[in-house]
Design a protein around this nucleic acid. Structure first.
Length: 643
RNA sequence: GCCGGCGUGGCGCAGCCCGGUAGCGCAACCGACUUGUAAUCGGUAGGUCGUCGGUUCGAAUCCGACCGCCGGCUCCA
C-alpha cells in the first residue's frame, strides 16, 4: 500500500490502485505529486508526497483554464461537426483554442458557443486520461490533421517520446483531445467562465501556415473572481490612452498624416515640455552632454552602421536626391558616433555621454501599430556613452541608478529586469558577444538587481538589459533598455589616444530610459488614468467666476498664478457653476477655484481638488505657495488645504 | 504584411439585413437667465454617409478595389 505524505505532515496509506484524489478533500481539482501536477485520478505506485491543488491557486487556475479550453473546443465541435482543433493552452488570466471551424464564425456566435459550453458543464462529464500508443492516438484522432502533425513531431523528438512510445489522450463524453493534462475531474468543476474575443492566428504562429480561428476566454475559481477580473478589464479600458488622449485634448493621429504618426495638441505639448525639460536637466546633472542631429542621412552611414544589412525592413525606403540616396533615421546611434569622430579623442575625454531627444522613424508592421504605444515616428531619450573598457561596468551601473531614480519619480513599482542575449542574426563576433553579455551580468550583480534571462531577444548589435515597470493597476510595461555594444566602435573605426600614446578602441553603451516619449506618455496616461501629478498637468488651476462681474477678478488671480509659474485657466463660458465644475472635473484639472462675491469680499477662496474635496477660507498666496511646493517636489499626491 | 470586425457632422452613436436623395445625444454658435461646487432653458448652424469604381431608374444601404481604425497573429498536445 503506498504511503502518502500530506502537507500537514500526516502519512495516510492509500489502498492499492486507489487514486490520490480520495484523500485530498472536496476543494481539490488536481494534485501535486512529488512536485508534478497530476489529475486527482492519478494512482501512485509507491510512496509519494501529495498536495491538494485548489482552484484558487495559480496551479489550480491553470488547470481550470486548460480544462475550459477543452470544453470550448468540444462545444465548437458539437455546434459545427467537422471542426479541426489545433492547440488550446491556458494563458495569463484565461485560455484560448485555435480551431479550423467548418463554418464562418464571428463574435456574434460567441454567446451560442458559451451556451453550448454551459451545457457541457451542466452534464458534468468526467475527464478521462488514457495512455495509448501513437498509432492508436492517430486512429482515435482521425481527420484531426493538426493533432496528427503534433503526434508525428513528438515522435521525432529525442529522448522523452520515441517512436512507438505512448502519448496521452483526454476524453470527456465522446470528445477526445491529445493532451498532457492534468485536468479537473469533471466539466462540472468549471464554474465561472466567459468567452472574450475571437480573432485569427496562424498554425504554429507562422504566416506561411493556414490561418485558424482563435477564440479567447477567461475562467476563474468563483463568479466573484470572474467579475473582479472583468472589472479590471473595464478599469484598463477607462485608462486607455487613446481615449484619454482625445478626451483631454492631448494628441491625435489624423488620417492624412499616415499610420503610426501623431500630432501633439497644445495641452499635450505643454505636458511634453515638462517631461522633456526635466529629463534633459537630469541628464545634464548626471554628466551627460546634449547634442542635436538631423533626421536623415546618406545611405553610406547606414551601410557602415550595419542598419541597411540587418534593419532595412524596419526603415522607410530611401529618398533619391541630387547628392545620392538618403534614409530617415530609425536610430540615433550613427549620428552620435559621427560627433565622437569629429575630433581625435583622448582617454581623458572618456566617458563621453552624448544625449539627445532624437526623433526616429521606423516602418513597423502595419498591424502592430497601437496608439502611442507602437508608432512609426517618435522621439527617444537616447544616449550613447562612449568609454574605455575598464569604465564600462561603472557606466552601466550609473545608468541603472538613473533609471531607478527616474521611475521612482513617477511612482512605478519595483522593476522586473530582463537580460536579453544575442539573437541568431548579429553583426558581432562570438567573442565580442560573450564579452558584452558578461559585462552586463557583472553590472547587474554589482548593482544587486535580480534579473531573468531572455534568450535571443537582444538586438543585432548586442545584448541588452530591459526594465519593466509595474503601473497603478498592476500591468508591466517595458520602458528602459540598456545595450552594450562592441560592434559599432569597430565598424566606425572609433578610437581614442590612451595614456600610453597608443590608439585604442572605445566601447559604446546605448540606453533609453523612458524609451520613446510617445510611448512613455501613453504609459503615464494609463498609469495615472489621465489625472497627472501637478507638475505634468497641462492645466493646473481653473478659475470659475460665479457671474460675469467676477471675471475681472479671476483675471487678476490667473495673472498672479501665471507670474508664479502656474498654468491657470479661466472658464468664463455662459454656463452654470455646476456645469463648469463638471467640465473641469472631466478634464481632470487638479484644482478648481470658484470665485464669487463672498470670496472677493473675504479675500480668501475655496479650493476644490480632484477628489471633489472643498476647503474654504484659503488665502490666495497660500494656494500659490502650496502649488509651487507640490510642483517643485513633483508630488504624486494633491495638497490637502484643510491641513 | 496576414486574418477578422469596423469606418455616417468635432466626439459618441442610430439608420444598412428588406435600396427610394440622412437622424439622436454631446460639443460649437446665438439668445434669455447672472447663477456658489459634476449637466439652466430656448434657438441656429454643421454631414455629397472613408475613397474610387460597379450593379440599379435610383446606393449610406448591394458588389469590388484601395485607404484608415480596432482586435489577434509569442507563451509549444
Amino acid at each position: 500500500m503506498p504511503r502518502l505524505t500530506l502537507p500537514d505532515g500526516t502519512h495516510p496509506e492509500l489502498p492499492e490502485g486507489e487514486p490520490v484524489g480520495g484523500v485530498l478533500g472536496p476543494d481539490a481539482i488536481a494534485a501535486r505529486v512529488d512536485g508534478e501536477l497530476r489529475d486527482l485520478s492519478f494512482v501512485p505506485t509507491g510512496d509519494v508526497a501529495v498536495e491538494p491543488v485548489g482552484a484558487v491557486s495559480d496551479d489550480g487556475l491553470h488547470v481550470l483554464r486548460h480544462s475550459a479550453a477543452h470544453v470550448l473546443a468540444q462545444a465548437v465541435c458539437r455546434l459545427w461537426p467537422g471542426t479541426r482543433y489545433a492547440i488550446g493552452p491556458a494563458i495569463d488570466d484565461g485560455f484560448y483554442y485555435d480551431l479550423a471551424i467548418a463554418a464562418h464564425v464571428s463574435a456574434d456566435d460567441l454567446p451560442r458557443i458559451e451556451d453550448e459550453m454551459r451545457a457541457i458543464v451542466a452534464e458534468d462529464q468526467p475527464f478521462i486520461r488514457e495512455e495509448v500508443s501513437r498509432s492508436e492516438a492517430l486512429a482515435r484522432l482521425a481527420g484531426q490533421d493538426f493533432k496528427r502533425e503534433i503526434i508525428e513531431d513528438l515522435a521525432g523528438e529525442e529522448g522523452e517520446v520515441g517512436p512507438g512510445d505512448t502519448v496521452t489522450l483526454y476524453r470527456n463524453d465522446h470528445w477526445v483531445d491529445l493532451c498532457l493534462g492534468p485536468h479537473v475531474p469533471s466539466t462540472g468543476r468549471i464554474g465561472a467562465f466567459t468567452l472574450t474575443s475571437i480573432s485569427g492566428a496562424y498554425w504554429r504562429g507562422d504566416e506561411k501556415n493556414p490561418q485558424l480561428t482563435r477564440i479567447y476566454g477567461t475562467a476563474w475559481a468563483t463568479r466573484a473572481d470572474l467579475e473582479a477580473h472583468l472589472h479590471r478589464l473595464e478599469e484598463a479600458e477607462r485608462r486607455d490612452h487613446r481615449l484619454l488622449g482625445r478626451q483631454l485634448d492631448l494628441f491625435s493621429s489624423p488620417e492624412e498624416l499616415g499610420p503610426g504618426l501623431w500630432v501633439w495638441h497644445p495641452r499635450g505639448g505643454v505636458f511634453r515640455k515638462q517631461l522633456e525639460d526635466w529629463v534633459r536637466d537630469l541628464h545634464l546633472a548626471r554628466g551627460y552632454d546634449l547634442v542635436v542631429t538631423p533626421h536623415i542621412a546618406r545611405s553610406v552611414l547606414w551601410e557602415t552602421s550595419g542598419h541597411l544589412a540587418k534593419y532595412a525592413d524596419n526603415m522607410y525606403p530611401p529618398m533619391q536626391t541630387d547628392t545620392g540616396d538618403y534614409y530617415v533615421k530609425p536610430m540615433n546611434c550613427p549620428f552620435h558616433v559621427l560627433i565622437y569622430k569629429s575630433q581625435v579623442r583622448s582617454y581623458r575625454e572618456l566617458p563621453m555621454r552624448l544625449s539627445e531627444l532624437g526623433t526616429i522613424y521606423r516602418h513597423e508592421r502595419l498591424g502592430s501599430l497601437h496608439g502611442l504605444l507602437r508608432i512609426r515616428g517618435g522621439t527617444q531619450d537616447d544616449s550613447h556613452i562612449i568609454c574605455r573598457p575598464d569604465q564600462l561596468v561603472d557606466e552601466i551601473v550609473a545608468v541603472f541608478d538613473l533609471t531607478l531614480e527616474i521611475h521612482r519619480t513617477f511612482g512605478f513599482g519595483d522593476p522586473v529586469v530582463n537580460l536579453s542575449t544575442l539573437p541568431g542574426q548579429t553583426i558581432l563576433e562570438p567573442e565580442m558577444a560573450a564579452r558584452a553579455t558578461e559585462t552586463l551580468v557583472t553590472a547587474l550583480e554589482r548593482y544587486g538587481l535580480p534579473y531573468t534571462e531572455a534568450e535571443g531577444e537582444g538586438t543585432f548589435y548586442g545584448p541588452k538589459v530591459d526594465f519593466h515597470f509595474r503601473d497603478a493597476i498592476g500591468r508591466l510595461w517595458q520602458l528602459t533598455t540598456v545595450q552594450c555594444d562592441f560592434a559599432l566602435p569597430e565598424r566606425f573605426d572609433m578610437e581614442y589616444t590612451g595614456e600610453d600614446n597608443k590608439r585604442h578602441r572605445p566601447v559604446m553603451i546605448h540606453r533609453a530610459i523612458l524609451g520613446t516619449l510617445e510611448r512613455f506618455s501613453a504609459v503615464l496616461i494609463e498609469h495615472y488614468g489621465g489625472a497627472f501629478p501637478l507638475w505634468l498637468s497641462p492645466e493646473q488651476i481653473r478659475f470659475v467666476p460665479v457671474a460675469d462681474r467676477h471675471v475681472e477678478h479671476c483675471r487678476t488671480l490667473a495673472d498672479t498664478s501665471r507670474a508664479s509659474g502656474l498654468r491657470p485657466f479661466i472658464d468664463d463660458a455662459k454656463e452654470s457653476v455646476g456645469k463648469k465644475i463638471r467640465s473641469a472635473q472631466l478634464m481632470k484639472v487638479p484644482y478648481i477655484v470658484v470665485v464669487g462675491d463672498r470670496d472677493i469680499e473675504a479675500g480668501t477662496y475655496t479650493v476644490r481638488d480632484r477628489e471633489g474635496i472643498e476647503t474654504p477660507g484659503v488665502p490666495f498666496d497660500q494656494i500659490i505657495t502650496a502649488l509651487g511646493d507640490e510642483i517643485a517636489e513633483r508630488s504624486l499626491e494633491q495638497t490637502r488645504f484643510g491641513g
